[in-house]
Design a protein around this nucleic acid. Structure first.
Length: 549
RNA sequence: GCGCCAGUAGCUCAGUUGGACAGAGCAACGGAUUUCUAAUCCGUGGGUCAGGGGUUCGAAUCCCUUCUGGCGUGCCA
């Protein structure tokens, strides 16, 4: 926002001075505040072009800016950087804009209503969601919220693998537990079966509704078992996600896709494209022609398709639904299969560049310095529900979204359970609650912002105050870059910084002071806007913004 | 072997897409509460940005290479 203004002013200046220039210079916020509010390398980048030294060029530019009202000072530093300081008055006007926009502050039309599909979690419907899914949930949902806020039409979709091998195993596992309830002794529970306690719960629930399934034929019985298990697990997963404040716009069922004949379609399309052949009684896809390491089997010798085929079919529906961007958020164990999926998309003539893959790295859980091993089949998992019970939704979401996607994440349950200040989410929420508390106090003291005179903004002349306004003004661009880079963790860092700036300000300055109502009003005006910005950020991360703590 | 991702303070991690002396939190140590919430603030110590080469005015960031770790490399999903 402010950067753009400065950039435009620089371009105006260069044109007026009739200088040659390249557009690739940057305007940025320097690390060191002594270097001004903003700095630009414009003179460094364009010195050669004009056959002068960077310093000389910079001086010319400075002269131009010295006459500009919005600028407090403009100077040259180092090898030829230009440092800009803007007038207090400029920031005060911007603060009024923030106030005006209120909860819309930070939003923009940047995305131009482009349609985006975000697919994430897509966990097998064979058990409760685990912490890996929780990370995906927090990440995908936050990214979606941010993208919508900056003007994309973003949709969330969950693909349910409710057909195929692992679902059969689920049904068989359920049957074994069901038999146990009817007095059968199962000596050896097969290792490939699902061992989790939830299967026993499902069996009990099923038995309480339908106790005579053992009299059915095997096919009927297993069909019923499968249907029941799928419905129940699906409900379980939805319930967990609801507790995590994650909702999906669409749930896509693999079974339904298959029923609609999508699998056969894919096979025939690929055949028409001359990309298939038969070998060893199986049908193969010549994916190596499209960059894959080796050819892949589409239909196995036993007549069943591999998981790849419905997955291709699913992705074709994404293309047919005319999205501008397709984003798949996957676990690291899936990166081996993406080349073959992309190969199929190419083979079928779709634009593979539209499909973007984000890999979320694994999570290592620690409990008291000990690593917690997870294994779904062995039933030893820490579920998303466990996590919400133990550390709470807010902390969990913050934690997951504060790390960049392609980095491993270490999660110490012991630490997170402590609810101490080691958990950064409290730090941010506390800033919000603290401001709410001050506003309550002000009300008691009969200091109100109702008839706030904008001239009082002059009183916000402390460096700390101007710095906070500057920080707030970064939000719109920050959200755009977070959306563009698909890196919602930038927002988590941002809001943490902003909260810290407020805490420091609070410790240093008295805000509500009966003896000085005008100063109090101006500071209240500032912090109430900080509160709004904190709330906007927290909301985008799906975290509550408490009035009291 | 090949492919993908990562390697930044004792620990967990940032670093705004190539900018100025590399930053937080935790842990360690020392301070601050007659107060608008101490879930806070202030201060001290802590670094060969895994190693080496290259690109240029300028590299934690880009290229090459070596090392280390994770994952992948099924007619499993």
């Amino acid at each position: 926002m402010v950067k753009d203004k400065i950039r435009k002013d620089i371009v105006k200046c260069l044109k007026q001075l009739e200088l040659k220039f390249n557009d690739n210079f940057v305007v940025e916020v320097p690390n060191n505040p002594e270097h001004g509010d903003f700095s630009s390398n414009v003179a460094l980048v364009n010195a050669k072009l004009n056959k002068v030294s960077p310093q000389k060029l910079a001086e010319k530019i400075i002269e131009y800016f010295s006459k500009k009202r919005d600028y407090k000072s403009v100077s040259v530093a180092g090898p030829g950087f230009i440092n800009f300081k803007l007038a207090n008055n400029f920031y005060h006007r911007k603060l009024l804009e923030i106030n005006e926009k209120n909860r819309k502050f930070g939003s923009s039309e940047y995305g131009n209503k482009k349609k985006v599909l975000l697919e994430f979690i897509s966990a097998n419907p064979t058990g409760p969601l685990n912490v890996v899914s929780a990370r995906a949930a927090a990440f995908g949902d936050t990214l979606c919220r941010i993208m919508r806020f900056v003007g994309f039409r973003a949709y969330k979709e969950f693909y349910i693998n409710d057909a195929g091998n692992q679902v059969d195993i689920l049904a068989e596992s359920l049957e074994l537990r069901y038999r146990e309830l009817h007095g059968e002794r199962i000596d050896e529970f097969p290792p490939e079966a699902y061992h989790g306690e939830y299967i026993k719960d499902l069996a009990a629930k099923l038995n309480s509704v339908e106790s005579k399934l053992l009299h059915y034929s095997e096919t009927d019985r297993l069909r019923r078992m499968k249907q029941f298990a799928l419905e129940e697990v699906h409900k379980m997963q939805q319930e967990s996600l609801k507790r995590f404040d994650v909702t999906f716009d669409n749930w896509m069922s693999e079974k339904k896709l298959r029923q609609e004949g999508a699998v056969e379609e894919v096979l025939s399309y690929l055949a028409e494209a001359h990309c298939t052949y038969e070998k060893d009684e199986a049908i193969w896809f010549s994916s190596t022609e499209f960059g894959d390491e080796k050819d892949r089997v589409l239909m196995k010798a036993d007549g069943n398709t591999t998981y790849l085929v419905p997955d291709i079919a699913y992705h074709l529906t994404k293309y047919q639904r005319k999205f501008d961007y397709l984003i798949d958020i996957l676990g690291p164990d899936h990166h081996g299969y993406v080349p073959r999926l992309k190969a199929a998309i190419m083979a079928l003539g779709y634009d593979v560049n539209k499909l973007e893959i984000i890999y979320l790295q694994h999570i290592t859980l620690f409990e008291g310095g000990q690593q917690v091993k997870m294994s779904k089949r062995a039933g030893k998992i820490v579920t998303m529900d466990d996590l919400i019970d133990e550390v709470g939704k807010d902390a969990a979401r913050y934690f997951f979204v504060s790390r960049k996607p392609n980095a491993h994440l270490e999660f110490d349950l012991e630490l997170a359970k402590k609810k101490s200040n080691e958990n950064p989410v409290y730090y941010v929420q506390y800033a919000h609650a603290r401001i709410a508390s001050i506003l309550r106090k002000a009300k008691k003291e009969k200091i109100s912002l109702k008839n706030f005179d904008h001239k009082l903004l002059r009183k916000l002349n402390k460096e700390d105050e101007l710095t906070i306004i500057k920080k707030m003004l970064e939000l719109p661009n920050l959200l755009i870059s977070a959306a563009d880079a698909r890196e919602p963790h930038r927002l988590a860092n941002y809001v943490y910084d902003l909260a810290g700036m407020f805490h420091k300000y609070y410790a240093k300055f008295k805000i509500v002071d009966k003896k000085n109502p005008e100063l109090s009003q101006s500071r209240l005006f500032l912090i109430s806007n900080i509160k709004t910005v904190l709330a906007v950020c927290l909301h985008l991360m799906g975290i509550s913004a408490p009035q009291k703590m």
